[in-house]
Amino acid sequence: MSTAKYTGECLCGGVRFTVLNEPKAVLSCHCEHCRKGAGGIGQVFGVFSKDDDLNLKPGSEDNISTYVFTKTTSGKPKDKTFCKSCGVPLWTVTDDVRQKGQIILRTALLDKGSELKPKAAIFTTGRPSWAGSMEGVPDFETMP
């Protein structure tokens, strides 16, 4: 069995998981959904393979709920999962990542997740002007 690269959990610990591999990409997003979902200026997330990378701990599935956003920039619905107990956003599944068997997982949930530096910042038109760009990280007004 593979050793986990990361362990993670929601705020209350009701949803716990391991991630077996490094993310395929790490991005900082400032779209409306990420800003409102985080209650801040945006979110940093990693793209992982849902089946190959993410392993939920026993009992976690019972604490997961999904909200489907239909008003999206792509025009296609996307699923946002969250913990039923503490409300923490867990991961997102857009139409594009669903077709690839992937998920968009919040890096803040991972131990050492703050060490995962974004390779790009997306939907930067939603980022406050006082927040500014990250050094060495390209900005994109939409999804590149």
Rank of each mutant, 00 (worst) to 15 (best):
Thr18Ile: 10
Thr18Met: 02
Pro23Ile: 09
Pro23Thr: 10
Lys24Pro: 05
Ala25Asn: 14
Ala25Phe: 04
Val26Glu: 10
Leu27Glu: 14
Cys29His: 10
Cys29Pro: 00
His30Asp: 02
His30Asn: 11
Cys31Arg: 11
Glu32Cys: 01
Cys34Met: 05
Lys36Gly: 07
Gly39Ile: 04
Gly40Glu: 06
Ile41Met: 07
Gln43Val: 12
Val44Ile: 15
Phe45Met: 08
Phe45Gly: 05
Gly46Glu: 06
Phe48Asp: 13
Ser49Cys: 01
Asp51Cys: 01
Asp53Ala: 08
Leu54Arg: 05
Leu54Gln: 06
Asn55Glu: 11
Asn55Phe: 00
Gly59Cys: 04
Gly59His: 03
Ser60Val: 05
Asn63Cys: 09
Asn63Arg: 08
Thr66Glu: 13
Tyr67Pro: 00
Val68Glu: 12
Phe69Ile: 03
Lys71Phe: 00
Lys71Met: 05
Lys71Asn: 13
Thr72Asn: 08
Thr72Gly: 09
Thr73Met: 03
Lys76Tyr: 13
Pro77Ser: 13
Pro77Asn: 11
Lys80Ile: 13
Thr81Pro: 00
Phe82Val: 08
Cys83Trp: 06
Cys83Gln: 11
Cys83Tyr: 03
Ser85Pro: 00
Ser85Asn: 15
Leu90Thr: 11
Leu90Gly: 05
Leu90Met: 12
Trp91Gln: 06
Val93His: 05
Thr94Tyr: 09
Asp95Met: 02
Asp95Gln: 12
Arg98Ala: 14
Arg98Leu: 10
Gly101Trp: 06
Gly101Asp: 04
Ile103Met: 06
Ile104Glu: 15
Leu105Ser: 09
Arg106Trp: 00
Thr107Arg: 03
Ala108Cys: 11
Ala108Glu: 05
Leu109Phe: 05
Lys112Met: 07
Gly113Gln: 02
Gly113His: 04
Ser114Gln: 11
Glu115Pro: 03
Leu116Val: 13
Lys117Ala: 15
Lys117Ile: 15
Ala121Asp: 12
Ala121Cys: 07
Ile122Trp: 10
Ile122Asn: 12
Ile122Arg: 14
Phe123Lys: 12
Pro128Cys: 09
Ser129Glu: 13
